[in-house]
Design a binder for these strands. Structure first.
Length: 516
RNA sequence: GCGGGCGUAGCUCAGUUGGUUAGAGCGCUGGAUUGUGGCUCCAGAGGUCGGUGGUUCAAAUCCACCCGCUCGUACCA
């Protein structure tokens, strides 16, 4: 075997686990900017940050979920050295419940808190769906009244506004788990033996935005639905009458029917209450919605911001009361060139049972979660993010590698830094000078400072404007001329470096402002 | 999980009915040019043809299984 071949076999393939991404400088800066804006809103509402680790003991995370027949499915788990199972958190709510329960004696309830962090899901990744992503949550723990839910809705709306999403481009849609329960009961889906059917119905209803009303009806019917690849999804097995009753309650049926047929939230709720009473099931959930509606209206929020909508589902099984969802309404163009509505960027609801399973005592709570990456994609589409690019540093090039010369270069750099200007000295192989400018060019450096022995003796430096030079390059075809003409280059005194560089950078900024 | 499509250089791809040593463009490295980015020219490095097994005198090419990517679907705390 040749040396070459042996070398080859030792070479590792660099590869990223599927569903994970490396984050670029632009992405990190954009995220920081967005998170800062969200945080400012939460702080103003009087919420305090708290952070929990990314690992939790597995039993603290998920086994309580009623719809989870396979407890460890979907989470990344490892055994600790004492053989206890730990998992990476898959949301920020379960860890918060654990934190509150564990510190229940120290925490002053109601506890108003927020946190941003990475969560992990061991699922099949897809476009825009990763196995690690960031959520930004806010919760009020120990607040039993729907006024806490109303406040959450208002805070979500304020967050959207703070991010520059205008009225009409978003809406917070509010429903109540109890309404869904009543509707299920009215449709004849009460009782434990119908639990699977209720689940199937809710899954079907939740797919309306993707499959359309006809798709939902197929999934509700006994026939089920056949997709493009020929795969068959079993239906929920509802009768035509049951389906009609369901759809009419949500207002998805015939024109003018159902609760959502009116333009006013007040009338929506009135219709809903009438209908539930007519079916002889509890209207408590609907009355809670009525309270929330009145609270947000008197706080000045319009129906274009916070809207009561009985068709909001939210998949989470642990919700016990009001649920809410932030939806973006503006159209975006996806990778395929299709125009689609962006959809949900976050949601939440009331989870009164989550802390109780640790403490045994009632600790009602409500909160919501924002999908940071997803919302960021949306903001980019709106042009609300990453508008101002960070200017690359000024490069001080190295002509001579002796310690005295390097010391001078380093001093230039420090002077610039102290004036608040990003600057760096070239740290590669300084003997190839052409490479230094090539480096500056590709990094996007606006200016390069050059000082050889000749300039040093005279106490001056050359300042090269790389942006102007790039523009001039189009007019020069011959390389010898290009080099000798030294385009866009000026000589200044060492003492003037900071003031001159400051002036030149300000000119660049002005040009950028003009062209955009 | 189920079904369809696709895997050839760092990237985008060509490669004829199975037939000699698998190619191009871009990128990368060096040089023309020991102190000046772009353009141009020259040279060079870089490949288990996704993996394993099979059919064959002969496989990048045909077959089987596996892995990965992708689209649809299911699930999604």
């Amino acid at each position: 075997m040749s040396d070459k071949k042996q070398k080859k076999q030792h070479k590792l393939k660099a590869r990223l686990p599927r569903g994970f991404v490396d984050r670029s400088p632009a992405d990190i800066r954009a995220t920081d900017e967005m998170v800062a804006k969200i945080k400012a809103v939460y702080e103003r509402y009087g919420f305090d940050p708290v952070e929990t680790p990314i690992f939790e003991y597995t039993d603290c995370l998920g086994k309580f979920l009623p719809d989870q027949d396979r407890p460890n499915e979907g989470v990344f788990s490892v055994a600790d050295d004492d053989e206890q199972w730990m998992s990476l958190r898959y949301d920020l709510t379960a860890p918060l419940a654990r934190h509150v329960a564990e510190n229940i004696n120290e925490i002053q309830l109601p506890y108003r808190t927020y946190r941003a962090g990475w969560v992990f899901r061991n699922e099949k990744p897809g476009p825009g769906r990763f196995r690690q992503f960031m959520q930004f949550d806010a919760d009020t723990v120990g607040a039993p009244g729907v006024q806490a839910d109303a406040e959450m809705c208002m805070m979500m709306a304020d967050t959207m506004e703070a991010l520059g999403i205008a009225h009409g481009n978003y809406v917070i849609r509010v429903n109540n788990r109890k309404v869904l329960d009543s509707v299920m009961l009215a449709t004849g889906l009460g009782g434990d033996e119908e639990a699977w059917r209720r689940l199937a119905v809710m899954r079907a209803l939740d797919k309306r935005d993707r499959l359309g009303l006809q798709g939902v009806i197929q999934l509700l019917s006994p026939k089920g639905r056949v997709d493009e690849s020929g795969d068959h999804t079993p239906g929920a097995g509802l009768s035509d009458e049951q389906i009609t009753r369901l759809l009419n309650t949500f207002g998805w049926g015939e024109e003018g029917s159902g609760s959502k047929s009116s333009v006013s939230s007040g009338i929506t709720i009135g219709n809903l209450i009438d209908r539930l009473e007519q079916y002889e099931v509890s209207a408590e959930g609907a009355r809670e919605l009525q309270t929330i509606n009145e609270l947000v209206r008197s706080a000045g929020y319009g129906e274009d911001q916070i809207d009561i909508d009985p068709s909001v589902i939210r998949g989470l099984e642990y919700y016990t009361g009001p649920v809410y969802e932030a939806e973006l309404l503006f159209p975006v163009t996806n990778e395929k060139g299709e125009t689609v509505v962006f959809g949900s960027v976050g949601g939440g609801g009331r989870y009164d049972g989550l802390v109780k399973r640790f403490t045994g005592q009632d600790v009602p709570a409500t909160g919501f979660s924002i999908g940071v990456s997803r919302l960021m994609t949306a903001l980019k589409n709106l042009g609300k993010l990453g508008q101002e690019d960070v200017v690359a540093p000024v490069l001080v090039t190295v002509m001579d590698g002796d310690t005295a010369s390097l010391g001078k270069y380093q001093k230039f750099v420090q002077d610039l830094r102290q004036a608040g200007i990003r600057a760096e000295m070239y740290q590669g192989n300084w003997k190839k000078f052409g490479n230094q400018l090539k480096y500056a060019d590709r990094r996007g450096c606006p200016l390069a400072i050059i000082q050889g022995s000749d300039e040093r003796e005279r106490g001056v430096v050359q300042v090269k404007d790389l942006i102007e030079g790039k523009r001039l390059s189009g007019e020069i075809a011959d390389n010898v001329t290009w080099r000798e003409s030294r385009p866009a280059q000026v000589e200044i005194a060492e003492a003037d470096i900071v003031s001159e560089i400051t002036r030149m950078l300000a000119e660049h900024a002005e040009d950028r402002a003009k062209s955009s």
